[in-house]
Simulated scan of single mutants.
Amino acid sequence: MDLRIRNPRAAAFSLVLAVLGGTVLVLGLLTDDALPPPPQTEALAWENVPAPSPSAKPARSAGKGLRRSAPARLEISAIGVSTPVTAIGLRRDGTLDVPPLRSDAPAGWYQGSPTPGEPGPAIIVGHVDTARDGPAVFFRLRELTAGDVVVVLRSDRTTARFTVTKVASYLKKAFPGDEVYGPTPTPSLRLITCGGSFDRARGSYRSNIVVFARAIP
């Protein structure tokens, strides 16, 4: 059998293709965690976000603040967010429920927490993205920085304003429930979404992004 290369140009081209193929394979392995969830696992994208149990709701402190009134709209100009807010509760397993998994879904206020403007931490969550539709309401939440302003329009037509104090990422298996949901002496706000690397086997992100904010007097 004659294995000699008869066409040097063809041989060189084959070598280039082989190198490119290897490079693409390596890049695929390096960036696999950053890929969005495959469609068949999309429903798991918000899997097991910890929340207080119904018997251990976030305490409402006795400090000064607004009367209780459900949030109607959330505005964060720094990242281009302007969304209605819907009320959500807990799942049977005690984890936080979420709005429908769509890119146009609104943010969700956990109705077991104080309303924005009341003393204590108001909890609002939103999706980061979906496999089918791409970026969702809190896609840019991780871009917020200390000093950014968050505005919540309430059902009684009053407004609660907050300033961001911290943005943090926590592994879901090490979520600091006491820090996020624990009582505060003044009105505060927690914005939560998914983040970090993506676990394709489970169809969910490994971490949560949490924005901490305090009321602007």
Rank of each mutant, 00 (worst) to 15 (best):
P8G: 05
Q40W: 09
P217K: 12
L90Y: 01
P116F: 06
P187R: 10
T31F: 15
F13Y: 13
P39L: 14
L171K: 11
F198S: 00
R92T: 12
R68Q: 09
P52L: 12
L17K: 08
L90M: 12
D129C: 12
P135E: 03
L96E: 06
K173Y: 10
S53N: 14
L66P: 06
V164W: 01
A146P: 01
L191N: 01
Y110V: 02
T130Y: 00
A131Y: 05
S77Q: 12
S197W: 15
W46Q: 14
E75N: 09
V19F: 14
R67V: 10
S169Q: 04
R91K: 15
A201N: 14
L144I: 07
R4H: 10
T95M: 08
V150C: 08
W46V: 15
S103W: 06
A105R: 01
A45P: 03
V180S: 00
A78R: 07
L101E: 02
L15E: 09
S204Q: 07
G177S: 13
D33I: 07
A87P: 14
V150M: 04
G94W: 04
Q40R: 14
A62R: 07
P39D: 05
S82V: 10
T83K: 09
G21M: 12
L153M: 03
G182R: 02
Y110H: 06
R190D: 07
T163D: 07
Y170I: 05
F212Q: 09
L101Q: 06
A43M: 02
L30A: 13
P217V: 09
R200Y: 13
R132N: 02
